[in-house]
Design a protein around this nucleic acid. Structure first.
Lengths: 197, 197
DNA sequence: ACATAAAACTGACCGTTAGTCAATATTTTT
DNA sequence: AAAAATATTGACTAACGGTCAGTTTTATGT
């Protein structure tokens, strides 16, 4: 009795959106350009997304989720057990991946607003029900399992994320040659301090 | 031989922009609405600002500059000498002020993007010439005068800023009753640790 | 005091855009 | 094979951002 949405159309729209947002910025990209590139009609866009800002948010969510899940899968193949070293492994993977894929880093830093970010953190903080594999939940699980006494886990996690972005992401984006390997020991030392306070 | 720009028109535009951006968001506010509210013609808008995003950036810069300058003036009336206590005084002032003026905090968190933020930090980091009284410069000056050994001042400052926003600003915006006073001792302890590492 | 020039100011105007919707195509169910 | 339900289309409209020729204002020279 029905016709179902074409997943290929959606993925073409996501891909076209990502490329165009990167090249020209969200504000400067028209929906007409996106649908032309994705080879669908304009009206179709609106059956998948409310507007181009919803497309942008979905892209950020999808991309960063994939990034973290890949890191976590790789971690599970190792025999790392201590929380601080687990976190460092994941951070290391993400830094290297974003260094390899600077377009993705560019996209995230260009489009992620403090408002969206803190809202997301706040949402994560409040709902303990969902079965998703968010960074925060895995962090909490690690703390519990290893009996580590951290008073404000969400603050500690937030600080780690900000520490990583402040030390590394500007370097990756703007500086040549990359001082990442100089930063890493300093960074990982700080993470150990934050977790084992 | 000339006519000068009317400062009252500019301040009306700034005020109207602030109110409308807050109420409806930048994207959803049209320039027509701003100029109608400010009672100037549309063309006039463009003699003061390139577009509404320049107006938004200017608002962020002005508001946060005032906030910091007020804090700094008040600090100078005290006899606080140690850098960590100076920083804590300023942070304390800013937290209380944003708690009193939540609209301002809402505006900042809604509109400040990670991209703008890291760009600004990066600019501050690179230019040592200007005679402005930026947070970073005062921080550097404090470090030099008091012979404190901080390897990466801009990272430390960035961390302090993020620490403050992560612990307090979500609470101020979303939680009732406010747990600010619970947070403060923890927060100020962390700041002391960061500075006197 | 007056003329003049330089810049601020105005709002009608234009090309472009976001978002809508009636018509059509496609797929699934009966 | 007909019907029903939903996806898809693209022409259309209202609204938007930005421009600019004409007008007003005001600082300055004489």
């Amino acid at each position: 009795m029905k016709k179902e949405k074409d997943p290929e159309k959606e993925s073409r729209l996501l891909k076209s959106g990502f490329n165009l947002f990167l090249k020209k910025g969200v504000q400067e990209t028209s929906i007409q350009e996106i649908v032309d590139d994705a080879k669908v009609a304009k009206g179709t866009f609106y059956t998948y997304f409310k507007d181009k800002y919803e497309l942008r948010n979905l892209l950020i969510a999808k991309k960063s989720n994939k990034l973290f899940n890949d890191a976590y899968k790789k971690l599970q193949k190792t025999d790392i057990k201590k929380l601080d070293e687990e976190v460092i492994f994941i951070v290391d993977y993400i830094i290297d991946e974003l260094n390899r894929n600077r377009l993705l880093l560019q996209f995230i830093t260009k489009n992620l607003s403090l408002g969206i970010y803190s809202k997301a953190i706040n949402e994560i903080y409040q709902k303990n029900d969902a079965s998703d594999n968010s960074v925060y939940k895995l962090f909490l699980k690690g703390i519990q399992e290893q009996n580590i006494d951290i008073k404000n886990p969400e603050v500690t996690l937030y600080m780690i994320i900000e520490l990583v972005s402040s030390t590394c992401f500007n370097s990756i984006l703007y500086k040549e040659p990359l001082p990442i390997n100089e930063f890493k020991p300093y960074l990982y030392d700080e993470i150990r301090k934050l977790i084992n306070a």
